[in-house]
């Protein structure tokens, strides 16, 4: 039986809508808004209760909302071992490499793990069900899936529940309704690690042997802001940077350029995109392509 069906995708979308309070409700009167807010709060409390009950309860809850009660989950990637909350929230470089490379080597066992599926929050949420049932996130799952500094600083119970819910949705696959298509690449820690390792492998292949996969990966892992800028631009604004050679040039420049800030990744990507207006970057010699993007990031650093 298929896992990622249209019906399940629709159920997933509706579930996220029911769980999130969007502050702007221009077509709703005050009474209606309060009623809706109360309904959202009720759904949030149900999720919160499942998560605080532990991994098994969370998995049961997710199976129910996704209409997966009786289904055996096959073809999904598994984690190499039980993760601590810290490892889950910020997977170390070695863990991301272990996950990314290990899953590459399991094509028969993890055959649902394709870029197409990995760009879908629903896919990662279903993976989480598997990991919860296998005990790979521990039994106490509130800290990794819901907790954090933002929650501690909540104004009141209602605000705390909202923050906890958003944390859960982002971390277990992404919150496209609020963060768009970039959320799955940026907010879900395991997905983020897989995509980073994938980009690193691609960069090593297309960078004219000037960079190896571990160096590329380390450069992407160093700063969450820089990673987020790279994927944000690739999803929304400068899709030309998704060409393997162009992205490799950006990553190679990042690796050799020291500690980039978000603005430097943006400058380098914009330089590539401007050049691509007149030229197909696929034909530009590697040294020239690399030089272009590296120079723009360097100039920004010097200017600042």
């Amino acid at each position: 039986m298929k896992l990622l069906t249209p019906a399940r995708a629709e159920a997933f979308g509706e579930w996220q809508v029911d769980l999130i309070w969007m502050k702007r409700q221009p077509h709703m009167g005050a009474d209606e808004a309060e009623k809706k807010r109360a309904a959202v709060g009720s759904c949030q409390r149900e999720l919160h209760s499942a998560v605080t009950d532990g991994a098994a309860a969370t998995a049961r809850y997710l199976r129910r909302v996704l209409f997966l009660e009786e289904q055996t989950l096959v073809g999904l990637p598994t984690l190499p071992r039980r993760l601590t909350p810290g490892e889950y929230l910020k997977p170390p470089l070695e863990l991301e490499a272990e996950i990314g490379d290990g899953w590459c080597q399991q094509p028969n066992r993890a055959n649902l793990l394709t870029p197409r599926n990995a760009a879908r929050p629903l896919f990662w949420l279903v993976c989480h069900i598997n990991w919860l049932e296998q005990g790979l996130l521990g039994d106490e799952v509130y800290s990794p899936l819901m907790g954090g500094e933002a929650v501690a600083g909540a104004r009141d119970d209602r605000d705390r529940l909202e923050k906890e819910t958003r944390n859960f949705l982002r971390r277990t696959g992404g919150l496209p309704r609020v963060r768009g298509n970039v959320s799955v690449l940026s907010d879900c820690p395991i997905s983020r690690g897989w995509w980073r390792r994938r980009f690193a492998r691609s960069a090593a292949r297309h960078a004219g042997r000037t960079i190896d996969v571990d160096v590329a990966h380390r450069s992407l892992h160093r700063s969450q802001q820089v990673w987020e800028e790279l994927v944000r631009l690739g999803v929304w604004r400068l899709t030309v940077i998704n060409h393997d050679r162009t992205r490799a040039a950006l990553i190679a420049a990042l690796a050799s350029g020291g500690d980039w800030r978000r603005e430097q990744m943006a400058a380098a990507a914009q330089t590539a995109a401007r050049e691509a207006i007149g030229r197909s970057l696929d034909q530009v010699p590697w040294a020239e392509l690399y030089g272009l993007v590296a120079a723009s990031a360097s100039q920004l650093r010097q200017a600042s």
């Binding site: 870029p115 298509n181 030309v240 998704n242």
Partner: peptide, 14 residues
Amino acid sequence: ALEVRCPVTQYACI
């Protein structure tokens, strides 16, 4: 030439 781009999966080729 024909470029193919899919932003959601960060795919591009020519």
